[in-house]
Design a protein around this nucleic acid. Structure first.
Length: 199
DNA sequence: TCCGGGATTGTCT
DNA sequence: GACAATCCCGGAC
């Protein structure tokens, strides 16, 4: 297993990839958060792509450029955080500049710092620690403070070290019932048979 | 300024 | 399966 140090962050070039390809390529990579208390890391096992102005389910649908979505219009490889009810969700900005696309990280499998995660988010069943988009940000201690941060320069980043040649499955996205045709797009990707996949 | 809604989760039936 | 918690965002006025 590789050490999850800052220098292991995947380079900018990794993110210069069509969003659907990138959403699939992220399966099996490792999401890392370096903190003063230690390293928290988990293998990405579920993602969803949001394809910008033509995707009714995306926040940037119809080119809706606001303070919230502004980071989506920037260069890929940055963090788009936003609040959903009582939770904070982590997205990776994708698409070239002025092409506001993003990828939601929906689930991870812990690989380092599990004890720290359980301090951040106590659970009865181990499986519930990181098997959902709101759960994993809480467990990893990733907050709105990371909105706009670079995955090449901040303490949150993506590295190798997870499954190699993962078996990836695809299907419709979760939790977007009111988006007409977009709710059926097969823009969700997950690691086959992994127990941390949200559903 | 007001008001409706949401890329979720936990709890209860 | 239903629903509340809870709060920021975005559009309407």
């Amino acid at each position: 297993m590789s050490e999850f140090i800052k220098g292991s962050a995947l380079p900018q070039s990794f993110y210069h990839t069509p969003t659907l390809d990138l959403a699939e390529a992220l399966i099996g990579k490792v999401l890392v958060h370096l903190t003063d208390n230690g390293i928290l890391a988990g293998e990405i096992v579920e993602t969803e792509a949001y394809l910008g102005i033509r995707d009714r389910a995306a926040h940037s649908f119809n080119n809706r450029r606001t303070k919230r979505t502004e980071i989506m219009y920037g260069a890929p490889g940055h963090i788009y955080m936003y609040q959903m009810h009582t939770h904070h969700l982590l997205n990776i900005v994708s698409g070239e500049e002025e092409n506001p696309e993003a990828i939601l990280i929906r689930a991870i499998e812990p690989v380092a710092g599990r004890a720290l995660m359980e301090e951040n988010r106590p659970v009865q069943k181990a499986i519930n620690l990181t098997n959902g988009p709101g759960k994993l940000t809480k467990a990893l201690g990733i907050t709105m403070a990371y909105y706009g941060a670079s995955l090449m320069k901040s303490n949150v980043f993506i590295s190798n070290g997870g499954s190699e040649n993962p078996a990836v499955q695809t299907g419709p996205r979760i939790g977007i019932p009111n988006t007409k045709e977009a709710k059926d797009y097969p823009y969700r990707f997950w690691l086959q048979d992994n127990p941390y996949v949200s559903r």
